[in-house]
Structures are given as C-alpha cells and as structure tokens.
Write a protein that binds this DNA or RNA. Structure first.
Lengths: 246, 246
DNA sequence: ATCTTTTTTGACTGTTAGTCAAAAAAATAA
DNA sequence: TTATTTTTTTGACTAACAGTCAAAAAAGAT
C-alpha cells in the first residue's frame, strides 16, 4: 500500500502556482534587473492579483531571494556532479571551476541578485524561512568544495602546514566571485583586454591553486585532456561557450 | 599681480555647500546604507531644502555615486603613495595590498556602494558627468597597479610568457575585490573561520602573486621587514587594525 | 438550495523620489 | 535709498510603487 500523499491537491496547486510566479519573476530579473518592474506587472504576467502574490511571499525582496535560492540550489547540484568526477583532487577542483562557469551561463540572474544580497536592508525584508533556505544551499556549495580541499591535504596533494583547508577554500571562493564580478565590469573588460570572461575566471582559479601548491601544478601538467574529459563526462550538455573558449 | 580667481565667491560657496551635502550623505551611507534614509532627511540634516539638493545632483543615485567617487579618489591617492615605495616590484605590489586594506577601513561606505554600482539601473539614474568622474578614478587605480606589473615583467621579476601584464593585474584586482566581499559575508566568515578579514585579503593577494611566479616567492623570502617598512614609511598613521593583524 | 469557510481581488494607504510655481534673496538700476 | 530685475531657494505637489485589507467570489459542507 502506498503511503498517503504528503500533500493535498490544494497544496500541490499552491506549490505549482509558486513555481509559476518564480518562473515569471526570474524572467523579469534577467531581462530588467530588480528595479525596472513592479509587483503589479508581475501579477498581470502570472494572471493573478497582487494580493495573491503576497500569499506566497512577504515582500518583493522575499520573492527575489527565493529566485536566487533556486539558482543557488542548481549551483550546488552542479558542484555535486562535478565533485564526483573521477581523477586527482586538483582535477576535481577544476571540474568545479567548470561548474561555476556553466552556472554563470545558465543562471545569468544570479550574480546580479547576489550583489543585492550584500545590502542589509534586502535581508531584513526577506522572511527568516527564505533566509535559511538560502544559507542552506550556500553551505552545500561550500562543503562540497571544502571536502575536496580536505581530501587534497589528506592525500598530500596540497601542503597542510601553511593553511587550513577552510582558508584554502575561502581563497578559491573569493577569487571565483571576484573574477566573475570584475569580468562583468565593462570598463575593466576593456582595460584588461578580456574577450572570454569565463576563461579569465578559470585562469584565476588556476593561479590560486598554483599559489596553494596544489599538485600537479599548471607548469608540471597538461590539463587539456582533463578539461575534455570534464566536458564530456560531467557537462555533456554544457552551453557552447565552454567549447568556444578553446 | 595674481591671476584672476577662477571661481567667483558664489561658485566657491556653491562648491562648499556641495561638500557639506556629500559629507552628510556619506555619514548616512555608512550608518544606514542606501535605502534607510531619504532626501528629506538629508535636506533637514544639511539645513537646506530638498529642491536645493537637486541643484547639485540629478538624483539620489547621482549623489551617492559622487560620494563613491570621492572615496575612489582617496583609494587612487593611497595607491599612488604605495606605488612610490622603494623596493622590489613585489614589495611595491605588497604596499598596494596594504593600501587596499587601509582604504577599506577608512572608507567603509565604499564597498557597499560598489555593489550597487553593478546594477544597471543605478548607473542610468546618475549623470554622465559623474559617471565619467568615477571611471577616471577607477582608471587611475588600474594604471598604478598595472605599471608595477609591467615593470616587474620588464625587470624579470615575473615571467612574461604566460600572461600579459593586464591579465596579471586583472587577477590581482579580482582576488582583492572578491576577498573583501567574501570576508564581509557573515556566513562565510564562520565557515572559513575568519577572524581577521583584512589579513585574509592580503593572504589571497600573496597566493595570486605566487601563482604568477612574482619573485621573490613567499617561500623564498621573509616579508616581515618589508611589511614593517611599508607601515612605517607609507602608512604611518594607519588605523590600528593593521598592527592588530600581526 | 443554503449556509460556512477559504481564497482571491483590486481599491486604498503610506512612503518617497523628483518637480515646479511661488516666495525670498541678491543684484542692478534709478 | 528705493524700485526693478534676476537669481536662488523653498516646500507643497505629483507620480510611482510596495504592501494591506475589507469585500466579493469560489469552494466546501450540510
């Protein structure tokens, strides 16, 4: 006998409507950012009234945070897949680097929203529930990468006498976020002569790994084959940009 | 005979009032962020009417951008001082690293505003004039660091066969911004066990420099004395944190 | 068919960025 | 000094939008 369904029809319909709202909100975020649309427009788009939107979300910020968390969950999922790549620890880290890039392309809204998340007033307007959901997915991403670093140190692929694994993970996270952000900046892109932003991101990750003495170093090893294997095995449906970079 | 003054009394008074407005706006930005104050409150604080504020700035965003540009100018000035440090190219880069940290402390509003600058709608609301002023100071910062990198390559302190100077500069900028941002994030701070955020920033800069093979590498050279000299010669009045880190 | 409960709705409120006609102040002329 | 013109300042007003809530509609129970 199957267990009784956890959700009633009503609850399922409610959830489906929430999905609908989130889908439309994401579209608006991608197309227009945060300011250039309002709740009335969203209500019209989903064909429900504004009051109904507020049955799902406590504020516009709460809604947008929810969209961001959905993206972040995708990132964590991608990280998980990448971390399962079979190879040296640094190769697995590299797979995560690819995951970052694939994520940036498939969730173009995310980095824009992440900027807003730095503002205290944004968080204050979101509900505690959504804040926790976001923190949870963030922690997943962290843990996946950190586990690889821990393993690298355990296996002797990275020296353990200079940094804690957490410090090394922090460095990788910092350089990744920073590179993504900076390579979006039009002015900097011109100054630095960046034509392939995502390639810059991965190059900076390489620099940090080399700085951390994560073996094998870039100069001691040719990662071309690794990269091809990652693309084949982990991201067979990756967006074209990944190949275009090479 | 002295040359006729470029500015009339009226113009000078106008400029003085602009300073006054900017000072109060910066205070509000530091204390409350962007949202939690409005133009009426600012008008009251400076003891002028709202209409007068709009004679100086085309919008709230225009005003805030102006505050940010003033900070950015300070950063460029600090960079200039740091770049004049007498020593190896990597030591001068290190001096700039310290400048970044000193800047972060003395202009705590800046990073918060920089986040908002990522949003297109923000730029759209600012005047062309202010946009250019900001770009100008940004370019100054870039040039100062880039010049050191160029010199490092010319002197053979850094290999020139792997990266252009601009790519190397971009890496340094990325890691710096990313580290500052990430070390503000409370969640990440706990996960990574960060107690001295600014120390993490400088450590990440070191990692990138090592990754770039910028000689002398961290493991080949003790920078303790350099650091002391930088603090003494370049930032004699540096905030206490700099010392507390050690 | 009637009553009760739940859900949806959109007109309404409060807030705030930005405007502009009128008032005040400053400059100029008589 | 006084009258007139020009410039500057002012704050009441408008428009836009997030969020609310009483009333209407729909769903469910009897």
């Amino acid at each position: 006998m199957p267990p009784p369904p956890t959700f009633t029809r009503k609850e399922r319909e409610f959830q489906a409507r929430e999905e609908l709202i989130l889908t439309h909100a994401r579209r608006l975020l991608i197309d227009k950012g945060f300011q250039a649309w309002n709740m009335d427009q969203l209500a019209e788009a989903v064909e429900y009234s504004k009051g109904t939107l507020y049955q799902h979300f406590t504020s516009k910020e709460d809604l947008v945070l929810s969209v961001a968390t959905a993206s972040l969950k995708q990132r964590a999922d991608m990280f998980e897949k990448a971390a399962a790549f079979r190879g040296l620890t640094r190769e697995r880290c590299r797979a995560i680097g690819f995951a970052c890039c694939e994520f940036a392309v498939s969730c173009p809204d995310y980095f824009h929203v992440e900027m807003m998340l730095k503002s205290t007033s944004f968080w204050e307007k979101a509900s505690e529930e959504r804040r926790q959901a976001h923190a949870f997915q963030g922690a997943r991403c962290w843990r996946i990468l950190n586990n690889i670093v821990v393993e690298a140190m355990a296996l002797g692929d990275m020296p353990r006498d200079q940094f804690t694994p957490e410090q090394a993970t922090f460095s990788l996270v910092s350089v990744t976020v920073g590179s993504h952000l900076m390579s979006q900046e039009p002015q900097l892109r011109v100054q630095a002569g960046i034509t392939h932003p995502l390639l810059s991101v991965r190059r900076n990750q390489d620099l940090i790994c080399d700085g951390l003495s994560w073996k094998p170093l870039l100069r001691d090893h040719d990662y071309t084959e690794t990269d091809e294997r990652i693309l084949r095995e982990v991201f067979p449906h990756a967006h074209l940009w990944l190949k275009a970079d090479h």
